[in-house]
Simulated assay, not measured.
Amino acid sequence: MADYPAPSSPDAAGRIVGGGADETERAAEAALRPKRLEDFVGQQVVRGQLSVVLRAALARGNVPDHVLLSGPPGLGKTTLAMIIANEVDGVLRITSGPAIQHAGDLAAILSSLEEGDVLFIDEIHRLARTAEEMLYLAMEDFRVDVVVGKGPGATSIPLT
């Protein structure tokens, strides 16, 4: 029998739980997740609707504009975002609502996106109000307005 440390034993750094997954754990998780929509098990209605959206967008020669995935934990929202990115040959960018504290945080994320990238915001309901307003503008007009300065001398610079 292998000599594994007890679950509550500290590691070499003195931590009881490591700060993140190593390469082996990441590879194992990636291998378990389906890569194509046809391989996603369950949720026939969601799969059907998403299939129509993806086929229509690809037939037009572009990617879907916006997709909202909602529901309790464990339904596969992150997996579906990964599938969308894979189906459109895009890069998936993942962040979370709590990680975006200011509108500038969101502006930095949005300005780093390339054509065809898929942005997945987990726990979007916890997005800061100012960032939420910026996200609406970005989704509707495909631009972000950055305000430089304060008061009457403030200037709004549109980033497209």
Rank of each mutant, 00 (worst) to 15 (best):
M1H: 09
D3K: 01
A6G: 10
A6Y: 10
S8A: 11
S8E: 09
S9T: 13
S9E: 15
P10C: 04
D11A: 11
D11N: 15
G14N: 05
R15Y: 14
I16P: 01
G18Y: 11
G18W: 09
G19T: 09
G20N: 12
T24M: 11
T24E: 02
A27V: 12
A27W: 03
A28V: 08
E29P: 02
E29N: 06
L32E: 08
L32I: 06
R33W: 07
P34W: 10
K35G: 08
E38M: 10
V41K: 05
V41S: 09
Q43P: 05
Q43V: 04
Q44E: 15
Q44D: 15
V45I: 13
V45C: 02
G48R: 05
L50P: 03
V52W: 02
A56Q: 14
A56D: 09
A56N: 14
A57Q: 03
L58Y: 09
G61W: 04
G61K: 11
P64F: 15
D65F: 00
H66T: 13
H66N: 12
L69R: 00
S70M: 07
S70R: 07
S70A: 15
P72D: 02
G74F: 08
L75T: 14
L75N: 06
G76L: 03
K77G: 12
T78G: 15
L80V: 04
I83P: 06
I83R: 00
N86V: 13
V88R: 05
V88Y: 03
V88D: 10
D89E: 13
G90Q: 07
G90F: 11
L92A: 13
L92K: 00
R93V: 11
R93A: 14
I94W: 01
S96E: 12
S96T: 14
G97E: 03
P98I: 04
A99P: 08
I100L: 15
H102C: 09
A103F: 01
A107P: 08
A108W: 04
L110T: 01
S112K: 04
E114R: 11
E114M: 06
E115L: 12
G116N: 10
D117P: 00
V118S: 07
L119Y: 01
I121Y: 01
D122A: 12
E123V: 07
L127P: 03
T130F: 00
T130R: 05
A131T: 05
E132P: 00
E133A: 12
M134C: 06
L135W: 00
Y136C: 05
L137R: 06
A138F: 12
M139W: 02
R143Q: 10
V146K: 06
V147E: 13
G149A: 07
P152A: 01
S156W: 15
S156T: 11
P158V: 09
P158M: 04
